[in-house]
Amino acid sequence: MAGLTHASPSVEAAPVAASGKRRFSPGRDALRRFLRHRMAAASILVLALLALSIVLGPLLWRIPINEIDFTARLAPPSWEHPFGTDDLGQDLLARMIYGGRISLAVGFAAMGVALIVGIVVGALAGTSKGPVDAALMWLTDLFLSLPQLPLLLLIIYLFRDFLKGWLGPEGGVFVLIVLVIGGFRWMPVARLVRAQFLSLREKEFVEAARALGASNVRLVVRHILPNALGPVIVAGTIDVAAAIIAESTLSFLGLGFPPDIPTWGRLLFDAKDYLDIAPHWALFAGGAIFLTVIAINFIGDGLRDALDPRKVM
């Protein structure tokens, strides 16, 4: 099996650690295994490049994002506009660079919120029994059944002005969007973590640790949680894509950023009606989202392989 792809980290890691005469550390070991995961390492590079171009891009590409040029509407890629233009003749490269900042930030932050809330709720429910579990699962069920659209409208109505006053227009909207997207995506994570916990907490190694007198917190953090991370990582990587796309639907409710601020999801949505007239419009936005998703997923794969030496070759 191992011969099919690259060498097995679990086989090689041990001799390296031994010969290096360094103190064995699970963290360093994991890092080494992660870096051996070539796709994961490459993905880190890709993400770093994306981030870099988004941060430095505006310095190099100086066309403003909202420069309307009716003479160059729906122009295909050219030297003047490497990514082409949209239906108002606005430069898509500039818009992609600007939008990337928001989309990536929203994607990662919302994923973070969803994972943290999901893991905490799931772990609490999975380790405790009786009323705490029931109450937390009730909360999960409640969130799953809430109709999102009316709730979002209510949230805008109640909190937009407050957050705007508190954090300024952009900051307020950002926090609101991250909280809303994350707040609607933690439930599957919580259910998955709980299910893993229910199974894991009865396993022998947990029993053993418990018998050795490990505290409950230690039991959860050091023993159960790392073994429950598989589905969590998958959920997290899917959530990044979902959050980037969800942001675009939010702006259609007036909850997202102001309509003149482009984000990747928004660009894709605007482009869809022009798919057969100006395919380049959708191509770059869709491609950027896809690239991000692939990178994140390979990193996720690398992480899960790194975290458990026994798994995968």
């Binding site: 909202n66 309307i68 007036g254």
Partner: peptide, 20 residues
């Protein structure tokens, strides 16, 4: 967007808002 841009060129700052 078109109106905002014209206003900008005339030294007027317009904040856009859209409501569902």
């Amino acid at each position: 967007a078109i109106i905002k841009q014209a206003c900008q060129k005339a030294g007027i700052d317009v904040e856009l808002k859209s409501v569902v």
